[in-house]
Design a protein around this nucleic acid. Sequence first.
DNA 1: CTTTAGAATGACCACGTGGTCACCAACGGA
DNA 2: TCCGTTGGTGACCACGTGGTCATTCTAAAG
Lengths: 217, 217
Amino acid sequence: MEDSSYNLFNRIPKDKRERLLHASIEEFAEHGFHQASINRLVNRLGIAKGSIFRYFGSKERLFAFVFDYAIELVKARLRGIRDITKEMPFFQRLKSILWVGINFVEQHPSIYRLYLKMIFQENFPLRDELLRKVHLMSAEYLTSLVRDSISKGEIRNDLDVDFVVFFLNSMLDRFLQAYTVAFWDAGTGIYKAPQEELLRKVDHFVSVIEKGLAIHE
Amino acid sequence: MEDSSYNLFNRIPKDKRERLLHASIEEFAEHGFHQASINRLVNRLGIAKGSIFRYFGSKERLFAFVFDYAIELVKARLRGIRDITKEMPFFQRLKSILWVGINFVEQHPSIYRLYLKMIFQENFPLRDELLRKVHLMSAEYLTSLVRDSISKGEIRNDLDVDFVVFFLNSMLDRFLQAYTVAFWDAGTGIYKAPQEELLRKVDHFVSVIEKGLAIHE
DNA sequence: CTTTAGAATGACCACGTGGTCACCAACGGA
DNA sequence: TCCGTTGGTGACCACGTGGTCATTCTAAAG
């Protein structure tokens, strides 16, 4: 399936491979695809430019490789939390997922930044294909949660599943954005907040998702 | 305050000025700042490259000019709807605002795309300054609405204003994104939906904001 | 110690970029 | 008709890019 350049990259020493992988994510996360510079990358790494092209063939294929790697990380994490929270009530489960998300972007900030860049920079190469991967993953994930909860009678059934998934997806994503991107915080104090504070915000947040903004009677 | 190049641009024939303005928005909206090409722009327009630099001095100043123009358009529209909806109940008012947003991105799709690019492409020139302008505008706007509604007892008062504003901002923005960017639609059918269908979606959407996802008892 | 296969290298290439500036065209006043 | 001023022009420049490939290095085999 994969060609020889892929194999070549997989055969180089492990620490070099990881340094290269990490630095590439950084470069793409910081500058997007087109503004990312192979020259800058190899200078930072102390590796010859030719090597990059021997390993990956082109800037585009390097990017695809890096992105696939990132997706795998996310998938693994999501699978984990899904299994662990299987028995929780829905809104409790939501909180856990949000926490996992926060931990992930904390641990891999540049991967999340890469994802954000990807979405809004329309002329990425392979954009549609890669986005489809991401979207399928998160939609499938949330869809199964939501179906479960509707059948258990935990949430409204006058909305179609897709709509609820869209809503949740939006909210979770936006919360993470507020946590990572100072601009989106908008005075809420979510941005890089300390644990306990963040916990309270998550509670507030999910409570609004659960009960809405209107006053209960 | 402004230098002579600005005045020069304002003195050229009106139709040329508008063609140039429009084409510039297109170019930046499609490619972001760095990937936008002055060569491509002038070729499309049939204007000499030198003229652009006589009018604006640099690519950066051209961009700033274009962006300011876009902001003015948005502001005007927002002012309008605020006054018109002054006496409506809060969640009714939200719907109107959403409608106005939809109409705006319908009428000026490239301005909205420019805004999205701007947000996630971190190395835009003047990014922080321009984002602050945008953010101030929308936050001030929503903040005053929310304060009103809290004092009228229309929405929960156990959340701080900033948090509610953040929530609303996120939701409105995301709805517009789903309407403009196919990817964000995610199976909800919001993307470029026809009027009647959209009306129903807006109702659903605001109803969730109002009452939440949980079942009422 | 010599041979040799294959990985690493970086000078080099063609290209597209933002920006410049010497020149040109047009036009109003004399 | 001539001149002077002013806006318009596009060939040109230095630069940084993604990508190439002849050469050098390395290390295992004979």
